[in-house]
Structure formats: C-alpha cells, structure tokens
Amino acid sequence: MTTSAEPIQHGAGPSRQRRINQLGLWLFFASETFLFGAFISSRFITSQTSTPEDLNQALALALTIVLLLSSISAYLAETANAHDDHRGFRIYTVATITLGALFLGGVALEWKEALEYFPPGTIYGTAFFSLVGLHAFHVLTGLIALAVILFLGKEGRFGSKDSWPVEGVIKYWHFVDLAWVIIYPTLYLF
C-alpha cells in the first residue's frame, strides 16, 4: 500500500506530479462541462429562450460583477502565493471568500423574489432554480475548498515551493466563474 509521501512513479519528481494533477483537474472540468451542458441544453429544449418580465436584471448583473471581482481576487491570491507573498495570499483569499459568500447571499435574495414571480412549478422557474442551484452548489464547494487552503496556508505553508493546492482550488474557482459566464446569458439575457 502506498502512502501519499511516496512518489507515484519510479523516480517521479514534483514537476511530473504537478503535470498529472493538472491534467486530472482539467479532465474533471471536462466532465463537469457535460453536467452543466445537460442542464443548459435542457433549458433551451423546454423553455427555448423565454424569460419572464419579472426577472431582477439589476440584481443578476450585480451578481455577475461580484463573481468577476471574486475571480480577480482569486487570481491575485494565486499570484501572491506563487511569489511567496503570504500576507497578500491571505488577504486576497479572504476577499475571495467574502465575495463568494456575498454572491450566495445575493442568490438567496433573488430566490426569495423568484419564488413569488416564477416558482419551480413553472417551466422557466424549473430551469432557473435547477441551473442557479447547481451553480450555487459549486460556489459552495469552492468556498469550502478556499477555506481549507486559507486554513492550511495560514503559516505560509504553500508559497512557491508547494503551490499546487492553491492553484488547483483557484482553478476550480475560475471554472465555477466560467460556468456562470455561460449560465448568465442562458437564463437572463433573452
């Protein structure tokens, strides 16, 4: 039985392991794309491009901007970590988590309104709650992962010498943002 401390391949260096991890993560993204793809295409099949009049466009745009801001702060956290700026890493990770939580709060607010105007029992509401819920679930898992690297990295454990855990989590965060880039026009902009 191998332990995590042992190398995966005979004479495998950290750079080989990083390459394997990176490939694995991108394969996971490819797989997730199909999950989002299933729901996005189903939205078009059942409700075409119809959107209700009562959509809160201002709130949706605000959510989009919040997520974009969290993306740049995640990028800054990753860059800070890679340059051994541990303080910057912590600050920007906390900022990312805050913005992510703000996004979830915004979604909760949006859902409260949506339950009145287009509940899940309507055909648009079905797509809306399913897709936004699926995305919010991913945001939540991303927040948990960010909290873990913030906790583990509190004493400067990662830095440039062990940057993969930070990079991996932040790539995931960007992926969740990428999903929103497609979901946003799918649900709101028609």
Binding site: R18, E78, T79, N81, A82, H83, D84, G159, S160, S163, V166, E167
Partner: peptide, 9 residues
C-alpha cells in the same frame, strides 16, 4: 523569489 514562477508564468 522573482522572475519565473510555476504558478502564473
């Protein structure tokens, strides 16, 4: 640490 870093290029 300056110049080339693995994380961001």
């Amino acid at each position: 640490m300056t110049a080339v870093t693995p994380a961001t290029g």
